[in-house]
Design a binder for these strands. Structure first.
Length: 306
DNA sequence: TGAATTTGACCTGC
DNA sequence: GCAGGTCAAATTCA
């Protein structure tokens, strides 16, 4: 038992380090972008493709490592059906809304849910809008735990919540635990512009963002969806599709609206083929072949892993 | 003035 | 009975 806890703790550390590495690489990319070393629109410097490829490889290494760890980190102990069942039983206890009003606190307490965690030096902006609904002092922990729910809990019935806890051993670190998945269709500022069709970069994907690091506002853009829709060539259309599909945030639990759940067991990029191949631990039909023109490279790089 | 946060009370699971 | 999760009134903020 203790070994398991140690393993989990060690993996958390590794994930934290990888996240930091990816973050630093992103910062480097941002700096290069600002200095003009990587100019996707006016790329005449012969060193630029090399630097860019290096950055891509670094970021890909971090991402793949995180994916691998994350794939083993998801704690979906209970099926959606079981969750629904338990929720139904709880709902049945709340007879009517009038009673609920009288019985303050008649709520669905989360018993076991699908969770995933993230540690970062500061609370991460995962692109979703959260509203704080509680703060609690936890036993033997100096720092209070903050409770957040999705802003669209009531207007869209989004059940996603998260808890943010400063880590006692390292107060600079914040551990964010996510519960449930977003069913709302609102994501902030997913300014993803896909420029994969650049004639001078037929084997690369180029992206630019209106938003600047470290705001990871596109994390939940679900390139893991089956992308059954026709490929889009317009970046604005791409953004809309992202908004439409954020009901399926990648690493987290399987979305209810998708027949293709996204517990990845593997992910490979093939620039020459412009394809991202996603392997799922689920049924064979869940193996996804997704045209890269539908997927932004940085969607992968900014997943809320761990 | 509406939205977000704070905070004590309430409720559930163990 | 205790600890933790959620509610909702009060308060603060933009």
């Amino acid at each position: 038992m203790e070994n398991i806890e140690n393993l989990a703790h060690g993996r958390g550390k590794v994930i934290g380090e990888l996240l930091r590495g990816r973050e630093l690489a992103n910062q480097l990319r941002h700096i290069l972008n600002e200095s003009g070393d990587i100019d996707h629109n006016n790329n005449t410097d012969s060193t630029t493709p090399y630097a860019e490829n290096l950055l891509k490889e670094v970021l890909m290494t971090f991402t793949n490592s995180l994916l691998f760890l994350n794939n083993n980190n998801l704690t979906s102990d209970v099926s959606d059906a079981q969750l629904a069942k338990s929720e139904d039983s709880l709902e049945s206890n709340c007879k009517s809304t009038s009673i609920v009003k009288e019985r303050r606190g008649c709520y669905k307490r989360r018993k076991v849910s699908q969770t995933w965690e993230n540690e970062s030096e500061k609370p991460v902006d995962d692109g979703h809008q959260w509203r704080k609904y509680g703060q609690k002092k936890i036993l033997h922990i100096d720092f209070p735990r903050n409770y957040y729910r999705c802003t669209h809990k009531y207007d869209q019935g989004c059940k996603a919540t998260k808890q943010v806890q400063q880590i006692q051993e390292d107060p600079l670190l914040h551990k964010t635990t996510y519960y449930g998945h977003h069913t709302c269709s609102a994501i902030q500022n997913p300014e993803i512009i896909v420029d994969s069709l650049s004639p001078t970069h037929h084997s690369s994907m180029f992206l630019s963002f209106d938003n600047s690091f470290p705001t990871p506002t596109k994390q939940d853009c679900p390139f893991l969806s089956t992308s059954s829709h026709p490929s889009s060539t317009s970046s604005s259309v791409k953004r809309e599709e992202c908004k439409e599909e954020i009901v399926n945030p990648p690493p987290p639990p399987p979305p209810p609206s998708s027949s293709h759940n996204d517990y990845l067991s593997g992910l490979t990029f093939d620039d020459s083929e412009k394809h991202v191949t996603l392997s799922s631990t689920l049924d064979s039909h869940d193996h996804l072949g997704v045209n890269i023109s539908d997927i932004s490279y940085d969607d992968v790089l900014n997943w809320p892993l761990s």
